[in-house]
Simulated assay, not measured.
Amino acid sequence: MLDITKADGVGANIRQLRMAKGMTLDRLASLSELTRGYISLVERDLKMPSIAALLRIAAALEVKAAYFFDPNSEPAPRYTLFRQEDRNTPLREGGFELFALAAGRTRKMMEPFLLSPPLKSAQRASHAGEEMLFVVNGRIAIKLDGEELILSKGDCLYFSGETPHEVRSLGRQRAEVLVVVAQTSNN
């Protein structure tokens, strides 16, 4: 089973692929619409990218985001299985806790994550493709282009990832949200 709970190596995998493609930091920054400094911090594992940033970097490098968690994964197994006990240490960035649920599968049309948003609003995100949020536990507030929606356990929201959005947990405990991002043109 692929251990996707280790943040170590994600940045190194991004750097290795960028260099293998002969791409400069400036070119990757331009293609991903991120700053050179941000990508440099990510590549040195000093900063873990948000889902939106990871998706932008992946699109610029023409791979699925899961590649950065395990570039040596076997090509397209029939299925991937993520068990409750695999949830040891999440990736943490900007108050978010994140588990990639199908990192071991390549050439997939969707990127599923289990997300625990922070209790305060995080940085706005936008990315290519479409996104679906399903609240597994708790309550969240999500701002879509300035409009705030409140979602409770069992609620589902589907929207264009290009719509600027930010999400936070409501109440005393973090919510748990299934996030599925679909992009159309990556390998």
Score class of each variant (00 low, 15 high):
1 M>K: 14
1 M>R: 15
4 I>H: 10
6 K>S: 12
7 A>S: 12
8 D>V: 12
8 D>L: 13
10 V>P: 02
12 A>Y: 08
12 A>W: 02
13 N>I: 05
14 I>T: 10
15 R>E: 00
15 R>P: 00
16 Q>T: 09
16 Q>Y: 13
19 M>G: 02
20 A>I: 10
23 M>E: 11
23 M>G: 09
24 T>R: 14
26 D>N: 12
26 D>V: 11
28 L>R: 12
30 S>E: 15
30 S>R: 08
32 S>K: 07
32 S>Q: 02
32 S>E: 02
35 T>P: 07
35 T>C: 05
37 G>H: 13
37 G>F: 14
38 Y>Q: 08
39 I>S: 03
40 S>A: 12
40 S>W: 06
41 L>W: 08
42 V>E: 11
44 R>A: 14
45 D>K: 03
46 L>W: 01
47 K>L: 15
48 M>H: 09
50 S>C: 07
55 L>V: 13
56 R>Q: 10
57 I>T: 01
57 I>Q: 05
57 I>P: 02
58 A>S: 13
58 A>W: 08
59 A>T: 09
59 A>M: 04
61 L>Y: 09
61 L>P: 06
62 E>A: 11
64 K>N: 14
65 A>I: 07
67 Y>L: 03
68 F>M: 12
70 D>A: 14
71 P>F: 08
74 E>P: 01
75 P>K: 14
77 P>K: 03
81 L>N: 09
82 F>T: 11
84 Q>L: 06
85 E>S: 02
86 D>I: 06
89 T>R: 11
90 P>Y: 09
92 R>F: 09
93 E>H: 11
94 G>L: 10
95 G>I: 09
97 E>M: 10
99 F>T: 06
103 A>T: 03
103 A>S: 13
106 T>R: 00
107 R>H: 02
112 P>N: 06
113 F>H: 07
116 S>R: 15
116 S>N: 09
118 P>M: 09
122 A>C: 06
123 Q>I: 04
123 Q>H: 10
123 Q>W: 03
124 R>Y: 01
124 R>G: 04
125 A>Q: 10
129 G>I: 03
129 G>W: 03
130 E>T: 08
131 E>K: 07
131 E>N: 07
134 F>N: 04
139 R>C: 01
139 R>S: 12
139 R>L: 04
141 A>M: 08
141 A>I: 01
141 A>P: 00
142 I>R: 13
143 K>E: 11
143 K>G: 04
147 E>H: 03
149 L>A: 06
151 L>A: 05
151 L>I: 04
152 S>W: 06
156 C>V: 07
156 C>P: 00
157 L>P: 05
158 Y>M: 12
160 S>R: 03
161 G>S: 02
162 E>I: 06
164 P>D: 02
166 E>A: 15
168 R>N: 09
171 G>A: 11
173 Q>M: 15
173 Q>V: 15
175 A>R: 08
175 A>S: 13
182 A>G: 10
184 T>H: 12
